[in-house]
Design a binder for these strands. Structure first.
Lengths: 157, 157
DNA sequence: TTAGATGCAAATAGTTTGCATTTGT
DNA sequence: ACAAATGCAAACTATTTGCATCTAA
């Protein structure tokens, strides 16, 4: 074997400090590839709301060698793992993918200006348990969307 | 003018008994056209969950003279009027449109078999009022989606 | 070492548009 | 009567697929 290290440059592979979501990928038995970790990075840095088109652009900017198909394959995988969830916010063509920290996500969409306001406290633990008891289901997460007008558009400011 | 009645056949135009949603259309100042009322009918008869592709098929079966573009224009209009709301249930390509009776809709999606279970009681009035008070927003509706496994897939049966 | 993941480019599917014509009010 | 809505078909956009190659474990 030649002594030159034929190391593949994977900036994410500094191992050790993996994001909890990367851990989730590994635990589910998926490989921690450069494409997947880059896509995850971009989504996480987006603040939790990103459309497939924006994602495609930003991933391309981060590393032009990552193909479109892989980005879509990541979206599909992450959705199946409940890391993200697709939803319609603005356009009806392009889905917006939202991060699901701890399995849930909540926001308010202003139907006037399109602004998205996230909030944390959903108080849905009770309902979750009630549904599990009543229907025999097992619930792992939820998405709650409110529609209406934001403070500015409601004239409350 | 000739005495022959050149009546256009619009089976929905029996006036009088319009569905509450058709009323909503009229109140918003939109015409109650044959295409719109047919699309609304098909959505209502679907039980409240229908993908754009299924809708296209069923509208075509009901009246082949209604064009695809009009169906999409209806989906857009109904969504703006909060009569329906697009969401991703199975595929990430084709949205499923859900009816929003009284402005809200709730369901559980089984991530194993894809089954969708609707439920009525969301107990979100309190949270709605709290958010309105705290954030100054005005809320008119919401969509709540739970993810998990149904009774069959959870082995609870 | 090897199953799993990737990138490419072509194929597919879903949605929108412009415009002449029709229709609800 | 006439603004609004429609149907058509072509254009456009987003997403998926097959396959040879590559790579994380």
């Amino acid at each position: 074997m030649p002594s030159s290290d034929a190391v593949s440059y994977n900036s994410h592979m500094n191992d050790a400090n993996l994001s909890p979501r990367a851990e989730k990928l590994r635990e589910a038995g998926h490989k921690l590839t450069h494409a997947r970790l880059t896509v995850l990075d971009v989504i996480e840095q987006s603040g939790g709301h990103i459309t497939s088109t924006e994602l495609l652009d930003r991933v391309n900017a981060a590393d032009a060698s990552i193909g479109r198909a892989s980005v879509f394959r990541c979206l599909d995988l992450f959705t199946r793992l409940s890391i993200i969830r697709p939803t319609y916010i603005d356009s009806s063509v392009t889905p917006t993918y939202v991060l699901m920290p701890d399995g849930h996500h909540h926001h308010i969409i202003c139907s006037n200006c399109g602004r998205v306001i996230e909030f944390e406290d959903c108080h849905l633990e009770g309902l979750t348990r009630e549904l599990e008891a009543r229907l025999g289901v097992k619930l792992t997460g939820h998405l709650l969307e409110f529609y209406g007008t934001c403070a500015e558009c409601s004239g409350s400011v």
